[in-house]
């Protein structure tokens, strides 16, 4: 592994991340929609908790969950579906011919998507906190940063894996992303503590990194509620998330190699409209 190889791939990461970050600012209306739309759902769910006289922390749970939907949607539409779209628009063959690791491309997509989405999710959260006048009780800010980063690495690792697998799906990719929206919001407890699903369902849902990540973030923002509504201790959730990071990064490399080999063998790698 030479310095040139490393630099080339780092440049590829930067090059692929660049349009993700800069592209968003070229279309300001998208920023508005991406910030405002989750707020509508958040508002609806916050009002229903209000109507039921739920503890104030639940409105905070909803706002946090609503902000985190931006990451899940980015993983589905900005990561998983991306290579399929690149194929449809004719860019995939250029990527394949470029003298770089394909993992750099996926990493660039992930880094760019993560930066852009973090800004939008933060805006959603700040506005939500302001509108509903909620207070957060954050006592471990460093732990919060660590949990968030580990969750994002695992989540975007999962997105990198999906990007390869989606190439095998053809136009079913669109339906797959659609199918993984509300059901994952449900399974991962975006708008209620995942513990409410019951232990077995929550364990099953934990394979999606955002499940445990969101649960840990809620416990960190509302430590007083962690005994009643937290699923697992934060340290355990962090450990599992770290394991998911390693697992998804390895699986993404394996699935990328498999997809490329299969695509070349069947001649479908650049075949459009299938």
């Amino acid at each position: 592994m030479s310095d040139t190889w490393l630099m080339t791939n780092l440049r590829a990461v930067k090059g692929r991340a660049y349009p993700r970050v800069i592209g968003a600012s070229r279309e300001p209306s998208w920023i508005f929609f991406e910030v405002a739309l989750p707020l509508l759902t958040v508002a609806a769910y916050a009002y229903i908790y209000k109507f039921m006289d739920a503890p104030a922390a639940f409105i905070g749970f909803v706002i946090l969950g609503g902000a985190m939907t931006a990451f899940w949607l980015n993983v589905l539409w900005g990561m998983a579906s991306q290579l399929y779209w690149e194929k449809e628009t004719g860019n995939l063959q250029l990527y394949m011919m470029a003298p770089i690791s394909r993992m750099s491309l996926l990493a660039g997509m992930a880094v760019g998507g993560l930066i852009g989405t973090t800004m939008r999710a933060a805006a959603t959260m700040i506005i939500g906190i302001g509108v509903f006048s909620i207070t957060l009780d954050l006592s471990e800010p460093l732990m919060l940063v660590v949990v968030f980063m580990v969750t994002m690495i695992a989540l975007y690792g999962m997105g990198m894996m999906f990007a390869s697998l989606y190439l095998l799906l053809g136009r079913e990719a669109w339906h797959m992303s659609n199918l993984m929206t509300e059901p994952i919001y449900l399974a991962s407890g975006f708008y209620f503590p995942v513990k409410a699903l019951g232990a077995y369902a929550a364990v099953g849902a934990s394979v999606i990194p955002i499940t445990l990540g969101l649960d840990a973030l809620r416990q960190l923002f509302y430590p007083a509620t962690s005994g009643e509504y937290g699923f697992l201790p934060i340290e355990v959730e962090l450990l599992i998330l770290a394991g998911l990071c390693v697992m998804f990064l390895i699986l993404s490399k394996l699935s990328l190699d498999y997809m490329e080999k299969l695509g070349k063998r069947t001649g479908r790698l650049t075949l459009r409209w299938q």
Partner: peptide, 14 residues
């Protein structure tokens, strides 16, 4: 799934 989200929100409070 969309409906069940609401159901669980309701169940966890009631």
């Amino acid at each position: 799934a969309g409906t069940l989200i609401l159901v669980f929100m309701y169940l966890v409070i009631t």
